[in-house]
Design a protein around this nucleic acid. Sequence first.
RNA 1: GGAGGCAUAGCUCAGCUGGUUAGAGCGUUCGCUUCACAUGCGAAAGGUCGCGGGUUCGAGUCCCUCUGUCUCCACCA
Length: 876
Amino acid sequence: MPKELAKVYAPQQVEDKIYDFWLKGKYFHAEPDESKDPFTIVIPPPNVTGQLHMGHALDETLQDILVRYKRMQGFNTLWVPGTDHAGIATQIKVEAELRKEGKTRYDLGREEFLKRVWAWKEQYGSRIINQLKKLGSSCDWDRERFTMDEGCSKAVKEVFVSLYDKGLIYQGNRIINWCPHCITALSDAEVEYTEQQGFFWHIRYPVKDSDEYVEIATTRPETLLGDTAVAVHPDDERYTHLVGKTLILPLVGREIPVVADEYVEKDFGTGCVKITPSHDPNDFEVGKRHGLAEILVLDDNARVNANGGKYQGMDRYEARDAIVKDLEEGGYLVKVVPHVHNVGTCYRCGTNVEPISSKQWFVKMQPLAKEAVRVVREGDIKFVPGRFSKTYLNWMENVRDWCISRQLWWGHRIPAYTCEDCGEMTVSRDDVVICPKCGSKHIKQDPDVLDTWFSSALWPFSTLGWPEKTKELDYFYPTSVLVTGYDIIFFWVARMIFSGMEHMREKPFSTVLIHGLVRDSQGRKMSKSLGNGIDPLQVIEQYGADALRFSLATGNSPGNDMRYYDERVQSSRNFANKVWNAARFILMNLTVEDDNVDLAALRTEDKWILDRYNAVVKDVTTSLDKFEIGLALQKVYDFIWDDFCDWYIELVKPRLNDKENAGESERAQKVLLHVFGGALKMLHPFMPFLTEEIWQSLPGGEEAIMIAPFPKYDKALCFAQEAEDMEKVMDAIKAIRFRRSEMNVPLSKKATTYFETEYKDTVAEGTGFFQKLAGVSDIRFDACPDANAVTIVCTLGKVYIPLGQLVDIEAELIRLRKELENAESELARVQGRLNNQGFVSKAPAHLVEQEKQKLEKYGQLIESLKGTIKGLEKKD
RNA sequence: GGAGGCAUAGCUCAGCUGGUUAGAGCGUUCGCUUCACAUGCGAAAGGUCGCGGGUUCGAGUCCCUCUGUCUCCACCA
């Protein structure tokens, strides 16, 4: 900080410089050190091709606050950064780029295409990292990882092979969710259900050699092409005679049986269900039970395939229209009923997902889920807020096998190799070039890649070196806290937990801190399509990273969504400026070189601020330890602005300016320095740039505030009596200001003020404060000679100010009577409480004592008020 | 169908294991160019804490019912 300080804090001129200072100091770097306790966080890796959005900003801010706090507390703190290869998202982007050149990935071929993606990654992979730095994130950049780097790839292979060997990964033909746009299978978690307006088409299927028919209803008439049965409930008397009979499938002419299956609900629809084993998960099961044929009628693009006869080549929705039209013309269509239903869509591209039977790789979840449930149920892993453990458990307890193969090119290739000669499949950590069974060299690796989340699931230990036995892994694992949004509990958190339990035999983290979404000011989700996204980088440019961090960290509680308001950032920026100016003030008056406060030579106001400071240290520490980040910050904010700036700085100004008593000035400066320095340290995790910049120009202390010790509660700084005295003086000052403001008498118009009080010493000591802050010229304890003086009743007693103004006695009486009324109702409440046997006997002693004090206080107040009112009434 | 969140000042939200006269920011009103800060200072107005019960000496806080609202999970073709 230069000697001549700007009046206004300019974060733009500070932040990059400070960040470089931290980097040069290697303060973010951590090495295993058995003499210290570790504190570890792994970053939720942002997509490598992504750009920083408000969700990241919130996530990183919360992590950085925790990391900086713990680092200052002396923990050996490691925050591991990195990025995710984001299979589908990245591949889509590169394919879009190719499309502009009029090409598809098939034109390039797999190898060339992957080169393009890697080039893309190199180009944009650093962008998101640089954006994280703008926020002030104190990640150990020496340990930056990527989900497809060598180590992570090794971990992925190790996990795949090990699970395969244990029989926990298998290949199978099942109904999976297929995205025809991304042209890949998806896991259940990757499907988002949206409500769509559709129809129920009621269709007649004639019974063979009969005039009879059955009526079915479907929302997807195009799947009729793959029907291999119609099912009815075994107990449905309407249809018992038909079970075993044969139907003629309309338009197709295929003969299909009527089967009886409990899956059918008698009371729903017509009670008859068409069965399409290849295109519906329930039908698939029915088909298995009855040995039905599986006829796949759609291809990878969701176009009708060769099994669809004349409809071949049509898109699924074209085929739907054509089939409905043909059904109608053939007299098969009974009716069309509008129907709102939930349709699965791809979470990446929004395309309607098609259930299709397909040969894919799966992780067998049941055995893995067991430990993952236990570790949370037994409280070994805690969710904050706790309710999310319920969400998690509900999912984990009902989890189905995880489809992990993706028909993409960008990702971890599945390490399964098939011999083209003998058909033997080998799953191996190493590339297989010779068939171990027949010795053939015609080996083909499985073309598919793994679900992106498969590698993310290993992140807490793969980033620390696993499967190697590294000293980092040994020391920093399990990690301490995982910070993420509730939207990826299933995708990521759940999978990290079972992966950690399975491969490390230990939980991946102790606490999961869940936050909500950042919405726009109207409460809408920020999205590209709405164009309502706020760019954090622009906000940083305009208001500073500290202001953005402050805004994101305050005013909301864990797990709840929050709204972004520009006004909120503005007020955060104002706070930064307030702190800046407090520093400016201190530096302008500074003659001392350290903050070694002599506790024996303090004045009441010094003890008051030290007492307050100490209490805030305790509160802030307690809150942060409970992950109540917003609350903690609010306390620091209130302390700095209200207690320190508005009161203490004002209180000590006269001493600082007292040239005749340098010792007094120096003592005040040391208290100022000590308290302000401590407050800066408490503020640092939240507003790192500002506090570091100021810290660098304050005398003494550590080389960087980010490694300075976090303040600790100190019994030596408790001054209850002095604090109480000071509060009384402040209370009187506020009361006087109120009356003067009410009467439009500015504080600049000084007046002799008469006190009728039993705390003469306290008042006398506070003379300077009354003079400076309450428009008092001098204080007297004798009777006020002016019968027309303004009367103020406060905790110190009565205050009379002859303002020489016409006091409206009527208005005065109204006000005083209202005050009296309030006091009396409070007194009545207190009396009621103390007369209540239950309260006196059951409530904690200190509360009872507190009530007794109140009783006294209100008693005195009421007496005072009554006296004053009586006096005025006489005059009236 | 199941689970959960939210409902507190005009607006957006805090309020931790129940215990001062329920708070903040923004906005509004009044007054201040006070020698750190007008991104400021002083002061004020504004709330029957969604409704109704219950537990308790004591409920914004715990329990139940209801109303409104949002979200997640499941998905009856």
